[in-house]
Simulated assay, not measured.
Amino acid sequence: MDRDMFDTMTITKAMGALCATFLVYLLGAWLASSIYFGGGHGHSEQAYIIEVEGADVAEDDVVEEVDFAVVMASASAADGETLWRNCRACHVLEPGVHGTGPALYGVVGRPVQFYDDFAYSGALIEAADVWTPEALNGFLENPRGYAPGTSMGYNGMRSITDRANLIAYLDSIDG
């Protein structure tokens, strides 16, 4: 008689009950999640806003403008040399020797489209006539923003100190 208790039908019923319980749990978790998070997959608008007096501008959002001339005056060519490794994938420091980009020997202070044997994008000449330290700073910060349509695929160098150091290094290599 105990044998009938563990026949295959009883085991099948027990497994079915276990699977049904697990299914109800999963559906309940999905329903609770969609109710709690809004079902919009994170793209829904905030239902209400609590106004807090004096909290219009967060302290982290305040960006202090730094004068590039001040940063450039204290730039380190030695530190810029270590930053050069990012540039050498596409540029060369020998006069007239081009990589994917034009040779950067003597770039500081020279005309933007200096080499006749290099196919510059027209966007650069629209941005500047001469590669001054300020023009290089703007270009290195965001090439596509400074010269829209440029073929330079670099995303930019965010640190103003790094840009100044790199420009100081480029300025130092041509004597």
Rank of each mutant, 00 (worst) to 15 (best):
A103C: 06
W84G: 03
V97W: 02
H41C: 14
G96D: 08
C87I: 02
V71T: 13
V92S: 14
W84C: 06
V71H: 07
Q46P: 15
R110Q: 12
C90I: 07
D60R: 10
E59G: 12
S76I: 00
H98G: 02
E53M: 02
A47C: 02
D56C: 05
Y36R: 09
G101R: 01
D61S: 11
R88A: 15
D79K: 09
I35A: 11
G101Y: 01
G42C: 03
G99N: 05
A89C: 03
E45N: 05
G109H: 01
P102E: 00
I50C: 11
S74E: 14
G80D: 08
W84T: 08
I50A: 10
R110H: 09
M72D: 11
F37C: 08
L104C: 01
E94D: 13
F68A: 06
Q46R: 12
V92W: 05
G101Q: 03
G99Y: 06
E81G: 06
V108Y: 01
D60L: 08
G40H: 06
V70M: 02
V52G: 04
M72H: 11
C87T: 04
A78W: 09
A77H: 02
E53R: 07
D61Q: 06
I49R: 14
V108E: 01
R85F: 12
A77F: 02
I49Y: 14
A89G: 10
D61A: 09
L83N: 15
Y36W: 12
E65A: 15
R110T: 13
R110F: 04
E51L: 06
A89D: 06
V107T: 08
G80W: 06
H43R: 07
L104E: 00
N86S: 15
G106P: 03
N86W: 13
G38Q: 01
P102D: 00
S76M: 04
V57K: 10
V70P: 03
A103E: 05
C87K: 05
Y36T: 12
G39W: 00
S76H: 05
A55V: 04
G54D: 14
I35V: 14
A89T: 14
I49F: 11
S44T: 15
V57T: 10
H98A: 02
A75G: 10
G109N: 00
H41R: 13
P111W: 01
Y105T: 01
V57R: 09
P95N: 09
D67F: 08
N86T: 15
E65P: 11
R88I: 14
A73N: 11
A69H: 05
I50S: 12
M72W: 06
S74N: 15
A77D: 04
S76L: 04
E59R: 10
S34M: 08
R88T: 12
P102I: 00
S76Q: 08
C87E: 05
P111T: 08
E59I: 14
A103R: 04
R85L: 08
Q46V: 15
V62P: 09
E59F: 10
V70G: 02
Y105I: 03
A78T: 13
A78R: 05
G39Q: 00
